[in-house]
Design a protein around this nucleic acid. Structure first.
Lengths: 147, 147
DNA sequence: CAGAATCCTAATCGATACTG
DNA sequence: CAGTATCGATTAGGATTCTG
């Protein structure tokens, strides 16, 4: 029973797919379930974490940036989370990591073409949030006032 | 020291703002920091959680839906997470909750105009993920092959 | 400078049982 | 049916220390 629960968690917890919203057959035919979650869900999950959008947007605005520059521009990010976020994005083909063999080593990051197209979609979300933050704040105030 | 760490976590952990990407003064002037995180960050954080995008997209497609309908359409969601997600969206003014005093009670949810505009932005992200899932999968395969 | 490794707390989320 | 409450497993992520 514990084993059942645990394996369920491990295997399926990120597999919820968007099939009912798109062409399910097409999604299924392009999705190798043995490799893990539905890709749409994986990508959206990645986008949603604390730092990914911030890193992408910062690179979009700044072009090629060094690790230290990203760290100082993105207020509050720790070394660990910056590295982790950049590794994930690199793995997904969204950023390119370049190492110059200076002493000490110089590492820079740049959005790939795929990353640039993602940055555009991210900007849409960011702009929406910015444009509607007053409306949201007002809705929250009203909601909270009634309890 | 523990107290310091804990309070820092509690108070500031979601306050990282997008000021360096937008008009910082304007963001600051519209953002009451005593109420918590930067609104942009709050909204994007909400979008990024496991179920929010799915619920929004499902309501966009289905129009007005009852709680039970949402639960059966969205594969894998639990009662708890559905309720929690809907509450958050209701608080932000994104969905409207209507209760009919039948026995037992009937509850339905609908996107507000604000919610509809958000759904459009969400669709952009969803479509991006769908359109690029092959590219991402390929990038991952290549990345993973080199280690 | 860039990042890997360790430790530890807090938030997330699923499972389950219960209420009107 | 819709929702609440509680518990436990898992994960995210911050602080810190160490390496080339």
């Amino acid at each position: 029973m514990d084993a059942t629960n645990r394996s369920r968690r491990a295997e399926d917890s990120t597999n919820y797919c968007y099939g009912h919203l798109m062409d399910t057959d097409q999604v299924r035919s392009r999705w190798d379930a043995t490799k893990g979650a539905c890709p749409t869900r994986q990508v959206l999950g990645r986008i949603g974490d604390t730092w990914t959008m911030l890193v992408i947007s910062t690179l979009e605005k700044g072009g090629t940036l060094r690790s230290g520059q990203l760290k100082s521009i993105i207020e509050g990010i720790t070394q660990k989370m910056l590295t982790q976020t950049l590794r994930n994005l690199e793995r997904d083909g969204v950023v390119r990591r370049d190492v110059l063999p200076t002493v000490p080593v110089t590492v820079s990051y740049t959005l790939t073409p795929l990353g640039l197209s993602l940055a555009a979609a991210v900007a849409t979300m960011r702009t929406w949030a910015y444009d509607h933050m007053d409306e949201i704040a007002a809705a929250r105030d009203e909601y909270d006032a009634n309890r």
